[in-house]
């Protein structure tokens, strides 16, 4: 599958914006990604190993949080996983 890396994390992923990874599930893909690029780990996960609250993971067009099997969802070669930090704010 292809994992899309957002601008702020590319420095920790060898400057790449997309990385091909062979994996059976979303969590396997994330493990393999952070094994290859260990510096990514602290940006994606809390110290307890959970995905940081502001990091959105989209399997194709679906929010992984709302998939029935969440990070255990099966993936195949054509799937894409987008890592997208959230964007919000206000006037005060």
């Amino acid at each position: 599958m292809t994992i899309y890396i957002p601008t702020p994390l590319r420095t920790y992923a060898g400057g790449k914006d997309a990385i091909e990874i062979g994996a059976a599930t979303v969590s396997e893909a994330l493990n393999s990604l952070t094994n290859s690029y260990p510096e990514l780990r602290k940006h994606l996960f809390t110290s307890e190993g959970k995905v940081r609250a502001f990091v959105n993971l989209y399997l194709n067009d679906e929010d992984v949080r709302y998939l029935p099997e969440k990070e255990n969802s099966q993936v195949s070669g054509k799937d894409t996983l987008s890592i997208i930090p959230s964007i919000a704010g206000g006037t005060f």
């Binding site: 899309y4 957002p6 601008t7 914006d17 997309a18 959230s86 964007i87 006037t91 005060f92």
Partner: peptide
């Protein structure tokens, strides 16, 4: 006084940017 962009919209923007050879700046 608040704004938020839906993550799915960001996913699509990121995809489109990449196709144009651009990055989200």
């Amino acid at each position: 006084n608040r704004y938020q962009i839906a993550p799915i919209e960001l996913v699509r923007i990121q995809r489109a940017a990449r196709e144009k050879g651009l990055e989200i700046a």
